[in-house]
């Protein structure tokens, strides 16, 4: 009996090794999310530009939506070709308004909503950078940026 068990050991070892080498199921989970982008400034905001990416490149931008202020146009500027082609693993968004200072947003304002497609089940690590913020006269102003996922 013992001899039989000993004889089976090599076969069991081979089987375990084969099962370990079996390719794991690919992490192909895909889901969608929306990020509300907010800029906060103490002065009227007339122009802004930000860049959004995901640190591991697991994000694809699939849509860009306008913000809440009517001072800005229907849609901000972004690389429409890259987004339409599904190749935008990051996005640069910008917009400006020629409205008078009294009609510009002040304080915390949602400037855009970015719709993204995410890969995998790992929580995304978004990297959001405010590139430029300008006042009504075109001068740079102090502002901060953050996002929220509704």
């Amino acid at each position: 009996m013992r001899n039989r068990l000993v004889g089976l050991l090599p076969g069991v070892a081979v089987l375990v090794a084969a099962l370990s080498a079996w390719p794991q199921a690919a992490d192909t989970d895909v889901r969608f999310a929306a990020l509300d982008i907010f800029v906060e400034s103490t002065e009227p905001l007339a122009a802004w530009q930000f860049e959004l990416r995901e640190s591991a490149g697991r994000m694809r931008v699939v849509g860009v939506e306008n913000g809440e202020s009517t001072a800005f146009g229907d849609a901000p500027y972004y690389d429409l070709e890259a987004v339409s082609g599904g190749t935008a693993d990051r996005i640069i968004v910008a917009d400006y308004s020629l409205n008078a200072a009294a009609e510009l947003p002040t304080g915390r304002s949602r400037i855009a909503t970015i719709h993204v497609q995410l890969e995998g089940t790992t929580a995304p690590d978004y990297v959001l950078n405010l590139v430029a913020a300008g006042g009504a006269s075109g001068e740079p102003i102090q502002a901060s940026i953050d996002f929220d996922t509704p």
Partner: peptide, 11 residues
């Protein structure tokens, strides 16, 4: 070169 340049041009 950023949005502020375009804004200045537009103004």
């Amino acid at each position: 070169v950023d949005i502020l340049d375009a804004f200045t041009l537009a103004r």
